[in-house]
Design a protein around this nucleic acid. Structure first.
Length: 735
RNA sequence: GCCGGCGUGGCGAAAUGGCAGACGCAACGGACUUAAAAUCCGUUAUUCCGAAAGGAGUGUGCGGGUUCGAGUCCCGCCGCCGGCACCA
């Protein structure tokens, strides 16, 4: 049941004052690469603190929709137009608040291993972080002061780099393009800039690009290779430039074929992993395919004969020794764009003065946005709060930050607030945090149930914030959510996702008014495994409704006047031996299934337990003392009501809630004198026998052989082997 | 294309490598009832043999394998669902 005294709202000032406070902890901290931890900014000894803060300001390109007057997320932009309304969206650089989540990439990755999360969700986070190891390699532009840096995971293929490609938006393009190519390059850039990211990736098949006229020097062999621009290279990943090795990269291969660029083989598949290069056979290849796999280096000078792994490290050593490159790790993860141009959302506790930002002191929190008649977008890139001029004017010379935080901010730490939701002096009490979040050695929330849609959003953001709070000593656990379970979606009766347009939506209100909340809850748990998607069925609800009615009639009987009263069949006589066994089997199964969150099978067993007593007359009241508490967590209204009613006549139904009387099973009751063994011949079931539970193996075998069916089956055959699994079966292998 | 999940009766589903289909729905038959609803009892994977009692065989998407024994473990396919997608 819920403890409503802990209810919180992330939009309440008493809550979001602490969201703002946590933001200030990020603002006042930096990530120390030596300790791999966040530390107070005071420990930073460099000369530009603003360049290392975990919360910082930067100019970044955003999806700006002039018509809607707001920035849109990538997901909200379709084919270069806004998803809502279909208005044009343009890329525009804006001054934004960013959170340095990339500093935590390695720890966010490593931390996943110890988490009890579905592998699928862990994988989504791993892919999202997208860590890859490789090298940045410097290519000097010939006859120029400039050099281009590329990132590659395959430094071993450097001898096969036959051209270089820059992203069309790369700043170097303007500097190195020759006058003859200027027009072509400009036209191509213009064409690309009008495309959204989505379009650029969707039309992914056809490779396009333009030669810049410039050449770069391959640092491995001194060769001059042409420099191109192409939209298959993304500015946002790596260095925004690549060395193209068409023989060993599918995309480079397609591009090279399209534009007639040279293809040079530098890796051969080795023969059976011996590391020895195969006898060079006539080059059969590059009619159709590149070879992106590992092998042995060829045509590569000092790398020749080395397997890929060794060739990589030899090349890295060479690059570092000669100042041509560095070992580098890149991630797909970008820093988190943390500001929005919206009225709602937590205002930043930040003041601007003389072009400098600074934190508000803690005692001025919470910062609450003013009441505004017109809180709509301004039509410019100015946030709506900029119109509240009185509020913005913090002092004669200082102005408030007018951006607000995104909707994710409040949910990044709410689980901590639940530990201590009313505390005024701290975001969570130290003792409360220790008590609730440090259980079972690991810490973090014991069990978190939610959908997969949060995999790389909320679940990643919250882990990031939690690790910062951990580093700064505010919490005791390094991870927020120790165990995660994804509940499956309930589909419409047609097996399709519920949606208004399909007309297959079933509302809980409708079900509750028809069958009651107990039936709704019980059916949802009975439908199937928690993690699984499953279709709704009204007939199924009726089934559990009938089951609950049976439980009711176990205790109650309708009298002549049509009123329900305690059934006269109920007796204090103890249950029969077989009834008692069913009851204790039910306790065992329900208790264990609850631990495993296998609610569907727990309910099935409760049905078995109930059915055992439906026709019993007299009916031992002990059955209800045991069954009601087991049912209570899933059908609390019914269980509690019966518990109270029976308490007026029988002992043992005391005033406490029925769940508090959770029974414990007695293993002795579950033991049986005789067990049924199955007898198989060559693994196929042939007969069953009953044997005493203490029977010796010899006795069991004799009994098995005595069975007429077995006699018949083995007649005239040789028994080659006998397998006896105690308490389970006898298997005779015959020939 | 890559990654992940899932394929078991008419349906939702059970099954530490050991009796496949628990439990529920639907269907059919019966009891109660003037009747219906409600309730209770029974049958219900499939093929074949048998008048019946009963018996024999086949079955967990497909094909192999490991094992005394495979729905379960391994290899290779097929299908459905979800996610990512020019990440160098």
């Amino acid at each position: 049941s819920y403890d409503w005294s802990r209810e919180i709202s992330t939009t309440h000032p008493e809550y979001f004052r602490w969201t703002q406070w946590i933001f200030l902890q990020l603002y006042n901290a930096w990530f120390n690469p030596d300790t791999q931890k966040a530390e107070p900014i005071a420990t930073y000894t460099g000369n530009d603190a603003d360049a290392v803060r975990l919360a910082y300001v930067a100019e970044v390109p955003v999806n700006w929709c002039p018509e809607l007057g707001t920035v849109l997320a990538n997901e909200e932009v379709v084919d270069g137009k806004s998803e809502v309304g279909g208005f044009a969206v343009e890329r525009r650089p804006l001054r934004q608040w960013m959170l340095r989540i990339t500093a935590y990439a390695d720890r966010l990755l490593e931390g996943l291993d110890a988490l009890d999360w579905p592998e699928g969700v862990k994988l989504l986070q791993r892919n999202w972080i997208g860590r890859s190891e490789g090298a940045t390699v410097r290519f000097q532009i010939s006859d120029s002061e400039y050099a281009v840096e590329v990132f590659t995971t395959r430094p071993d293929t450097l001898f096969g780099a036959t051209y270089v490609v820059l992203s069309p938006e790369h700043p170097l393009v303007a500097k190195i393009t020759t006058s003859e190519q200027l027009e072509n390059v400009a036209a191509y850039q213009k064409k690309i800039s009008s495309k959204s990211d989505l379009e650029r990736t969707e039309l992914s098949k056809e490779k396009t690009g333009v030669f810049t006229g410039a050449y770069a020097v391959n640092p491995a062999n001194g060769e001059k290779v042409p420099v191109w621009i192409a939209d298959y290279v993304l500015l946002s990943y790596g260095t925004g430039a690549i060395m193209a090795v068409p023989a060993h990269d599918e995309r480079d291969f397609e591009f090279a074929k399209a534009f007639g660029l040279p293809i040079r083989e530098v890796v051969r598949k080795d023969s059976v992993g011996t590391g020895v290069p195969p006898v060079i056979s006539p080059t059969p290849f590059f009619e159709k395919d590149s070879f992106p796999g590992d092998g042995v280096s060829i045509n590569s000078g000092f790398l020749d004969g080395l397997p890929t792994a060794e060739a990589k490290s030899a090349m890295l050593t060479f690059l570092e020794e000669h100042g041509h490159g560095l070992r580098t790790v890149t991630t797909k993860l970008r820093d988190w764009l943390f500001s929005r141009q919206r009225y709602w959302g937590e205002p930043f506790p930040i003041i601007w003065e003389d072009g400098q930002h600074r934190a508000l002191p803690d005692h001025e929190l919470p910062v609450i946005q003013p009441e505004m008649d017109d809180f709509k977008p301004t039509g410019t890139s100015e946030p709506p709060l900029a119109k509240a001029t009185e509020w913005v004017a913090y002092s004669e010379t200082a102005r408030r930050e007018t951006n607000t935080m995104p909707q994710w901010a409040g949910s990044c730490w709410y689980y901590l607030r639940f530990c201590d939701s009313r505390l005024k002096t701290r975001f969570v009490g130290e003792q409360a945090e220790k008590y609730w979040m440090s259980a079972a050695g690991h810490g973090g929330v014991d069990l978190y149930v939610g959908g997969t849609e949060h995999a790389v959003l909320h679940l990643l953001y919250a882990r990031f914030w939690h690790k910062v709070l951990f580093d700064l000593g505010y919490v005791n656990s390094s991870e927020p959510f120790r165990k995660l379970v994804n509940q499956g979606m309930i589909l419409g009766p047609d097996g399709q996702k519920m949606s208004k347009s399909r007309g297959n939506v079933v509302t809980p209100e409708h079900v509750i008014s028809e069958y009651g909340a107990d039936s709704l809850r019980l059916y949802e748990m009975f439908m199937g495994p928690l993690e699984q998607m499953k279709p709704w069925s009204m007939k199924g609800v009726e089934g559990v409704y009938r089951f609950l009615a049976r439980v009711w009639r176990l205790a109650m009987k309708e009298n002549q006047e049509g009123r329900w009263e305690i059934s006269s069949d109920l007796t204090e006589e103890p249950p029969t031996a077989s009834q008692l066994r069913v009851l204790h089997a039910t306790i065992k199964k329900v208790t264990e299934d609850f631990e495993a969150m296998a609610f569907n099978t727990a309910i099935a067993q409760l049905m078995v337990g109930t059915n055992e007593f439906v026709n019993a007359s007299p009916r031992p009241v002990e059955s209800l003392r045991i069954l009601l508490p087991l049912l209570s967590p899933m059908a609390p209204h019914l269980a509690e009501e019966l518990w109270q009613i029976l308490g007026t006549k029988f002992s043992g139904f005391d005033g406490r809630a029925s769940t508090a009387a959770w029974p414990v099973y007695d293993p002795k009751i579950l033991e049986v004198e005789e067990i049924e063994l199955i007898i198989q011949i060559n693994g196929k079931l042939k007969d069953k026998i009953r044997v005493g539970k203490t029977s010796s193996e010899e006795d069991v075998l004799l009994l098995a052989m005595a069975s007429p069916k077995i006699q018949e089956a083995v007649a005239g055959k040789e028994i080659a082997k006998t397998i006896l699994v105690p308490g389970k079966l006898v298997n005779l292998v015959v020939r």
